[in-house]
């Protein structure tokens, strides 16, 4: 029968081994040779876009890379699906956008901020998502 000290050894040993493997896999998957995000394309505009995305808590309604709140559309492929002009008109609109009855806050962005968010969406849209990009936005693939 298992003793308490054996149970403790199982807990401590199992935790240590799996944590070390986890760290190893983290280093491996984030190493530059395994990059799937076109990291070299992240410029000042993309970073500014990410800041605007976060400071307005866009993820509190939308999803991106499949993460968010499921209240408003998934935006991973929005650049490809809707195009620059459509996105810009929503971001700069002085009146709330409300397609099919669900309202969005009117952010009234200036051109520079809207362009930064668009650059961020463009960068997001080019990430290799291990096949999810074809499921999340079939409309863009059908074009």
């Amino acid at each position: 029968m298992l003793s308490k000290s054996q149970a403790r050894a199982f807990f401590l040993g199992g935790t240590a081994v799996t944590f070390l493997i986890f760290i190893g896999l983290t280093v491996y998957s984030l190493s530059p040779k395994n990059d799937q995000t076109n990291h070299q394309n992240i410029d000042e505009k993309v970073v500014r876009g990410k800041e605007i995305w976060e400071s307005n808590n866009c993820m509190g309604c939308h999803t991106i890379l499949g993460e968010g709140a499921y209240y408003a559309p998934e935006l991973t492929k929005v650049y490809e699906r809707r195009g620059e002009g459509y996105i810009k008109s929503i971001l700069t609109s002085p009146i709330p956008w409300g397609p099919k009855g669900r309202k969005m806050v009117a952010y009234k962005m200036n051109n520079a901020d809207a362009d930064a968010v668009i650059a961020y969406f463009k960068w997001i849209g080019e990430i290799n998502l291990n096949g999810f990009d074809q499921v999340v936005s079939p409309l863009s693939k059908e074009k």
Partner: peptide, 9 residues
Amino acid sequence: YYIGVNKIW
């Protein structure tokens, strides 16, 4: 799985 990192996950 699907956030843009290696398939090993």
